[in-house]
Design a protein around this nucleic acid. Structure first.
Length: 235
RNA sequence: UUUUCGAAUUA
C-alpha cells in the first residue's frame, strides 16, 4: 500500500495519467487492498485530479463506500484548480464538513480567476463559520489583488496580512512582491524583498521581472548577477 | 503514506 500510494503521488506530480492508470489497475487486482484502504482511494482520486481527469476522479469518489474530509477536499480542489468553480461549489456545499483546506481550495480557485469579490465573500464566510484563515488564505487574497492591480486594494490586503502574520515566509513574500509590482509600487516590493532571508529562485525572479517590467532593465540585470553570487542557479 | 499556497516561459 505504501508503495502504491507513493507511485500515485509521483504520477500526480508528473501528470502522467497513463502510468497512473496502470498503477490503478495493479492495485485493483489485489482484492484485499481495494476495499480496505481509504487512504489508497484518496491517493487515487488525487492522482486523477492532478492529471486533469476529474470524470474518473468523481467516478472513484462515487464508487467508494467510505469518505472522509480529505476525499471531499480532493474533489473540491480538483475542480477549483481546473477552473470549474461551479462544480467545486456544488461539492463544497454538499460536503458534510468544511475545514480550513476546503475553504482555501475554493478561495484559491477564485483567486486564480481574479474574482476579488468572490474571494472577499468567501473569506468572510470562513470567519462566520469559525474557521481561522492561515497563510495559505493570505496568499490567495494577495494573489487575487495582484491580478486586479489596484494599489489601494492591494495595500489594504497587505495591511490585514501584516496584522495577522507579521513576518513573511518566501512564498507569501513572493506573492506580496508580485502584487506590489503589479500595483505599480516597485519600492514597496523592494522593501519586502530585502526583508526575506531565505530567498529562493522564484522570489528573485519575481523581483527581477518586476524591475524589468517597469523599465529598470539595468537594475534587473544587476539583481540577476547578485542572485548567482549568492549561489542560486537561474532556471 | 493521501487534500489547499508564490514568479517567469509556449499557443
Amino acid at each position: 500500500v505504501y508503495t502504491i500510494v507513493g507511485l500515485l503521488m509521483c504520477c500526480g506530480q508528473l501528470k502522467h495519467a497513463r502510468f497512473g492508470k496502470a498503477v490503478h489497475g495493479r492495485a485493483m487486482r489485489k482484492i484485499t487492498l481495494v476495499s480496505s484502504s481509504l487512504i489508497l482511494s484518496n491517493a487515487l482520486m488525487d492522482m486523477y485530479a492532478k492529471c486533469g481527469e476529474m470524470e474518473i476522479a468523481v467516478k472513484v469518489f462515487d464508487r467508494i463506500g467510505e469518505r472522509d474530509d480529505i476525499s471531499w477536499n480532493i474533489i473540491i480542489a480538483g475542480f477549483a484548480s481546473s477552473g470549474e468553480l461551479d462544480l467545486a461549489c456544488r461539492f463544497f456545499d454538499k460536503a458534510p464538513r468544511r475545514d480550513l483546506i476546503s475553504w482555501n481550495s475554493l478561495l484559491a480557485g477564485y483567486a486564480r480567476q481574479g474574482d476579488l469579490t468572490m474571494v472577499a465573500k468567501l473569506s468572510e464566510g470562513m470567519l462566520a463559520n469559525n474557521v481561522r484563515p492561515d497563510r495559505v488564505t493570505a496568499i490567495a487574497l494577495v494573489s487575487a489583488a495582484a491580478m486586479i492591480g489596484e494599489f489601494n486594494q492591494g495595500r489594504c490586503i497587505h495591511g490585514r496580512v501584516l496584522k495577522a502574520f507579521g513576518i513573511h515566509d518566501v512564498i507569501l513574500g513572493s506573492a506580496l512582491i508580485d502584487m506590489y509590482c503589479k500595483c505599480g509600487s516597485i519600492d514597496r516590493s523592494f522593501v519586502i524583498f530585502n526583508n526575506i532571508f531565505n530567498k529562493d529562485v522564484t522570489l528573485w525572479t519575481t523581483m527581477i521581472t518586476g524591475l524589468a517590467f517597469h523599465g529598470f532593465g539595468n537594475r534587473a540585470l544587476e539583481l540577476f548577477s547578485r542572485m548567482q553570487e549568492e549561489g542560486l542557479m537561474p532556471n
